[in-house]
């Protein structure tokens, strides 16, 4: 019995100490950001690997999600003769929930895992130590550009996901089940609010992006420099990143839409 309690205690302590380490790590990164702004090329390079390389999967996923949403909305709404409202359902679902959440999950899987693997490999091949010995701060040159780029890329990817999803829904609604084009757009305009829906979705995506890159970069930096350790770190990034997205989404939804 006491042994089990001890195990539990150890777990809790280790979770908190890791959280503390991660926070300190983040703090160190943030301190270096002002100095980084004079080197935008570093950020652009990272925007390419986190943003551009994730774009394709975002576009494909967004299109299908939008189409499926429209189709399911149609099946339900047609019974009430309210199939004109398809666009409201598609757009609201995409903006409030699916846009940021799906983008976050895909981002954790695609960009997050790549970040962890890259940094873990840099660590195990002593590139990070090498930089330190060249009097180059890896926090500023390696970590900070990645964190910043991920933070910027997420809302952009989310906007693309939402827009492609809306267009996918448009394809099904207008060309598939025959809603009038004007009805599709104008009913959405009637119901969708710029601030409560679109901007809240964007705020969510900013939060998700920040948390995912934070986890990804920390896991990479903290990984055990062996092939096994690297694999575990990458897995942890995807699992923790995805769970963080889902948990935070619930929290943010409760804050944003809980009391309209």
């Amino acid at each position: 019995m006491l042994d089990r309690l001890q195990v539990l205690g150890q777990r809790v302590i280790s979770v908190f100490s890791r959280l503390g380490q991660a926070t300190l790590f983040l703090y160190q990164i943030i301190l270096t950001i002002p100095g980084l702004l004079s080197r935008p090329s570093l950020i652009i390079k990272q925007l390419y690997s986190t943003g551009v390389q994730t774009l394709l999967i975002i576009v494909v996923a967004g299109c299908f999600v939008g189409m499926v949403l429209a189709l399911q909305a149609y099946y339900v709404l047609v019974d009430f003769g309210a199939e004109d409202s398809i666009s409201q359902m598609v757009v609201l679902t995409l903006m409030r929930e699916l846009g940021p959440v799906m983008t976050g999950l895909l981002f954790a899987g695609r960009a997050g895992s790549a970040l962890t693997a890259e940094i873990g490999l840099m660590k195990s091949t002593e590139q990070l130590s090498g930089m330190e010995m060249m009097a180059v701060d890896p926090m500023q040159r390696v970590m900070a550009p990645r964190v910043l780029a991920g933070f910027l890329a997420m809302p952009m990817l989310t906007a693309v996901f939402m827009a492609v999803g809306v267009l996918g829904g448009y394809l099904v609604a207008v060309h598939g089940v025959g809603i009038f084009e004007g009805v599709y757009w104008s009913l959405a305009q009637l119901k969708v609010d710029f601030y409560t829906d679109l901007m809240n979705g964007m705020v969510k995506s900013l939060v998700f992006g920040f948390v995912i890159v934070w986890i990804a970069v920390f896991e990479g930096y903290d990984s055990v420099p062996t092939s096994e350790g690297l694999g575990q770190a990458t897995t942890r990034t995807v699992v923790h990143g995805s769970l963080a997205v889902l948990g935070l989404d619930f929290l943010l939804t409760a804050i944003m839409f809980g009391d309209i």
Partner: peptide, 10 residues
């Protein structure tokens, strides 16, 4: 410093 693995930026 010369690292064992070289530590070149890949």
């Amino acid at each position: 410093m010369l690292f064992q693995s070289g530590a070149l930026l890949t």
